[in-house]
Every structure is written in C-alpha cells, then in structure tokens.
Nucleic acid binder design. Sequence first.
DNA 1: TTTTTAAAATAACATCTGTTATATAACTAT
DNA 2: ATAGTTATATAACAGATGTTATTTTAAAAA
Lengths: 192, 192
Amino acid sequence: MAPKTKFNKENIIEAAFEIAKDKGLSAITARSVAKSLNSSVAPIYVNFETIENLIEAVIQRVFTLSNELMAKQKGLNIFDNIGNASLEFAKNYPVFFRELMMKPNKYMESYEIVEKTILKAMAEDESMHNWTVDERQRLLFKMRALQTGLSTMVANGHIPSWLNEEEVEELFMETGKELLLIQKIKRGENKQ
Amino acid sequence: MAPKTKFNKENIIEAAFEIAKDKGLSAITARSVAKSLNSSVAPIYVNFETIENLIEAVIQRVFTLSNELMAKQKGLNIFDNIGNASLEFAKNYPVFFRELMMKPNKYMESYEIVEKTILKAMAEDESMHNWTVDERQRLLFKMRALQTGLSTMVANGHIPSWLNEEEVEELFMETGKELLLIQKIKRGENKQ
DNA sequence: TTTTTAAAATAACATCTGTTATATAACTAT
DNA sequence: ATAGTTATATAACAGATGTTATTTTAAAAA
C-alpha cells in the first residue's frame, strides 16, 4: 500500500485561504501553497485539476464564511443583521471584501433573492404595511447603498478617527431609523 | 543624427492607460504596451526606468482625470458636485474605480483636505450655521458613505433594473436633502 | 522479508514577465 | 556620399508560474 495521506483537500484549501486572506487571491500559487504546507506541489495537483480550481474552492469557502457570519446575527431587525454582518466581514477580511464583495461575480447574483426576502419582511412590518412597493424598494436600496459604502470604508481604513468601528454600526442603525422616519413624515403619517 | 522619435512618454502612457482601463493595471506589461504601440519594448525602457514607473504615471493620469471630472461639475451644491463626479467616474471607469478609489493609496490621503473644505462650506451655510461641529461632521460622513456605496454599486453593475443610472444621482441628492431635514427636525425636538 | 502500490518529492518543460546587451537603421552634419 | 549618433528592434537572460513526467518512499499485503 501507499504511504499515509498527509495532505487532503481541506488542508490545502485552508493553507490557500490563509495566504489569500493576507495577500489576495493572486498570491495563491502551486509553490506558495506547497511551501505553506511544507510539501511539494504534488498533493495540490492530486487534489485539484488546476490552480484555478483551488482558487475557486477558496472563494466558495469565503462565501460560506460570509453566510455563516450572517446567520450568526441575532438582532431583531433584518437591516441590522445584514449591516452588522457586512461590517464585520469588511473589518475581519478586508482583502476578501475588496476582491469578492465589490467585484461582479457569480456568487453575488443571489442578492436578488435576499432582496425579495427583505421586501417581504418589510411589507409585513406594521410600520411600512401600507406603503407602496416602490417606497419600500427605495428605502431598502438606500439602506443597501449605505451599508455598501460603510463596509467599503471599513475595509479600506477610511473611517475617520472620531468614529470608532463599533460606532459605525450604531451610525448605520441610526441612519436607517432616520430614513424610515423621513419617509413616514413625507407620507404625512408622523408629523413632528 | 538619430532617427526621428516615434514614441514619447505621452504615447506610451496613453497606450498603457487604454490597456488598464479595460483589463486593469496588472495588464500593463512591457510587451502588451509595445504591441499596442506597434513597437518593441525599447521605447518603453528609454522613457521609463521600470514598468512600475509607467504604471505609476498611468495612476497619476487617472487621478488627474478624476480631478478634472470634479472641476467640471457646475452644480450649486458641493455635495451634488462630489456625488456626481464620483458617480460619473464609477460609471465610465469601473475598473479604475475598483482598483484605485477603493484601495488604500497615497493619492487618496488628500481626502482630509477635501473634508475640511466641505465642513467649512457647511458651517457658512445658513441652514447649518448654528449646528455643532459634530452634527455637521456626522452629516458629511453619512453623505460620504452613501456616495461611496452608490459609486461602488454603479462600478459593479449592482444598480437594480428599476433605477436607471441618471436616477441614481437624483436619489443621492434626494437622500442628502432627507438627511439634512431629519437633522433639522431632531434639533427642533431637542430645543423643546 | 519481499513485493506492490499510490502518495509525495523532484525535476523538467513551457510560457510569461522584467530587464538588458547587442544589432539595426534612420537621420543629418560633414 | 559617408560617417556618426541614437531611436528602435532583436534576442537573450533570469525569475516566476502552471503543469507534468519521472523518481522516491512509506505502508500494507504476500
């Protein structure tokens, strides 16, 4: 029989993930991963047809991780949960955030489903129940834009010094409430 | 004497710019630029010490272009001008937007100066004249986050189909007015 | 113990990149 | 017309990369 298997798919993806986490996906090369594993390139090519396939597996892992982060959120409000997950991801994985979240890629296509889910939840919320679909859609879009902007700024270290990173989440929630309130005022529901 | 010069710095930067505009900065190589110029790599190395220097020159050019786009804005309101310039840049140069605007780089450091300029303009605006510095700073930050998010979404084709790209600018301005209004309302509450 | 087998290591290849040494050729001063 | 200057072309080198052919080796079956 053959020697015991020392390196499996999981080990290899893990090593490649750690490299890419710091240095970006392009730093995943047969030799860099092998070096990190203290192996030759052989195990990599036994487990993956091409390096592209390995990179693909790492990307899958990143999106799984991102979904886990989302599932872990325990807030009452779906806005807060998405915002918090996005901000946490941007903070902990800035390189992945830049390389994956803000580039067109097939894993992002699923956003339309997320959007529909949130719109449904908004329609069921008493405070927006008698809004038009368009009003709910516009509010959601504004929230998404804000969340994207804040996460991008967090990932790039563009948060000003007077605002620490926990406060970014608070500011996001605060602004969300403000946008909700202003829409109510515009509808004449809530006169200040 | 020598033959007439066929390729100067300007030609070379232009060719490299066009390559990077479509394929990103990493597509700038001695041979790719030479091919686009129908030349050998010789003129490139006569005009630039290293390829890194050429890429640097292209980046300079992109920031110059971005500043020109900003200067061209003729709106009354500095928020609108910045927002419009950012959105137009994201739309016309999505690859550069992703590679330069949302990565930490030395050319972005100058934002602090821009921020001070805007804060001064806000302080002189009658509608915010008696606000605290903190209130103005927070509003500006929200606007910046929104602008960053919208531009990012434009650059990545994440604008939903019910919103065309001209309407994004309108939505940005509308939301800006809403955030201004809500702050005024909040101040009214606080005074009571 | 010897043989078999497959995992891992090694080494080679082709290609792409930056860079440079050398060759070619176009212009003009003589 | 010739010779000198130098812009451009050519070709080569080194180093990085993907990939694969070959060799080595550890473990189990005989």
